[in-house]
Amino acid sequence: MHPIRFEPDQRHGTRVYHYLPGDDVVVSRHWPGLSGEWPEDETPFSEWAVNNNNMEEVAVYVGLVWRLTAGLARYAIPAYYLHDAARTLGRDPVLVDWEYEVDAEQVTAAARDNGFVPGSATNTFLRGPTGWEGERIGRDGAGLFPLATPRDLVSALHAVLLDASSEITVFAVAPGAERFERLTAALRGPVRPVPADVLGDDGIFVDLTIGSDVGNHDSIIVASQTDPRDRLTGLAADSTKRVESYEQRLGELRNVPDFLRAMPTLAGVTLDAS
């Protein structure tokens, strides 16, 4: 078990914190069953986007992102795999021009964080009344999806966990149509935004990057106009304690159902909570 620590960063004109575990991801002892045979229905991957490569730390990240943004309306841009995200989430996106980019091969905050870049979606089609149709969005653009529950965040992860690294950016803002319109307006247009433009006074920005291949590393970036240090410190300490407790109970997990029952306690959230 490696403690979660967020380090401050003064760029982007707002308060920014980075979690950069490198090779020391928070969970250091893993359930051996992640490398065994699984049933065909509910599995570690179907329920928590956990497999024998991106392991229990993914559930920890899901819980951290969800608890950090509690009380706000959450919207996410799954980087690049817009079509796959629409399929796994079962809904069409609101199209925007910009998405966030993190270089998972780098190890420092300054080298990893590329800020907002023009969105680039791969072979993307919209869903019509008779199913997926051939209306091409093209390679330019990104899709913003509402997230109602942690299960939606997991579904978004299912869409992007396909490459050497994967990225989802979550924007949490005050509920309401007017605030959502201001968010989308900040993510559209010819001027490259910075987190302060997108957040306003009430928002929280969270970028979750997961490295899958060797030489790619996980990270969480958090930005807010109001300093989230105390909340981040408390959630990080709580998550670290949950990991410690989980690792001590690994011997009690005899099969996949046991594992799945342990995940909400590890993550600090249940999949269908709001």
Rank of each mutant, 00 (worst) to 15 (best):
G141Y: 05
V154G: 06
A172E: 04
F145M: 09
G63C: 02
Y81R: 11
W98V: 03
T184L: 03
N255M: 03
R249D: 13
R127A: 15
P129F: 03
E99W: 02
I204R: 11
A148L: 09
G176I: 05
P32E: 12
S165P: 04
V206N: 00
L260H: 07
Q106E: 13
R249C: 04
P8R: 10
P146N: 01
F145T: 07
I220Q: 08
D152F: 14
A177G: 06
R11C: 12
T226Y: 01
V173D: 00
P193T: 00
N51H: 14
R127V: 12
Y81L: 14
A236S: 10
T124G: 08
E167D: 11
G203P: 09
V117L: 06
D24W: 01
E244D: 15
G138A: 07
R231M: 10
D207L: 09
R5E: 00
P190R: 11
L266M: 05
V50L: 07
V25Q: 04
S120P: 00
A172L: 05
D207A: 14
H217F: 15
E57I: 02
P44G: 09
T169D: 03
N114V: 04
H12M: 05
P264L: 10
H30I: 11
W31E: 13
F180K: 04
P44T: 09
